[in-house]
Amino acid sequence: MAQVSSISNEQTSPTSKLITLRISRFNPEHDESSGFMEFSVSYEKWTTVLEAILDVKKHHDHSVGVRYSCRQATCGSCGMIINGKPRLACFTKISELNSDVVTVEPMNNFPIIRDLAVKFEKLFDTHQKIKPYLIRDDTEIESNEKEFLQSPEEVEQYIQFANCIKCGLCNSACPTMATDSSFVGPQALAQAYRYVADSRDKGKDSRLKIIDDSHGIWRCHFAGSCSQVCPKGVDPAMGIQLLRGYMLGFRS
């Protein structure tokens, strides 16, 4: 399936350089295996991988399947494997990759919809499974106070983990996810910690019961790859170990 095309020079500026962009192509509906198409793309210092892919779609092959939305690392749509590591395409500058060849593939450990777009159903299912909301017997409306007050120190305990944009990069990098299709995954486990550590939440026991499973938190072996690829600094590995600290009695 290899094909080399180049974008016309009228699109480039004097400061631009050229890279070879290798895009993985696969349509599960009619392809037996995936292949790569190669495009010669010009880029500037600030050009992101997503912009390069969109250039290819605009000038060469509009059929390249890619999902994106915000272009500012907020929506978590454009996760993909870029030069072997899971990254957000909109958050990865080509100049930072220090390579003349940029290879983009769909994220591992997610079923492929087409080309670079993957299904997120499993990610959202496991996220929902850990009850990602505050659990209380009372409600704000019934309470005498207008809101549930927290000290800055209490907010610090979980706010880092509230930055998760559900992009799936952590699940793609996780070595356990690579082999265990039933594993809850670092994204959901980090979110379980986010709510367990929230002083307003009273659902700790029910959440710990959900993740205390043979395919739950005990399958994490602290490889830390999830934290290394997180584009928002969530550090799921830390959240998982702190969560396990609750279960092992190191924390209360």
Binding site: I159, G233, V234, G239, L242
Partner: peptide, 15 residues
């Protein structure tokens, strides 16, 4: 590490 020892403290992340 599995007990949450030596893995750092949660804090607002900086780029």
């Amino acid at each position: 590490g599995h007990g949450g020892i030596g893995v750092g403290k949660p804090a607002r992340p900086d780029y």
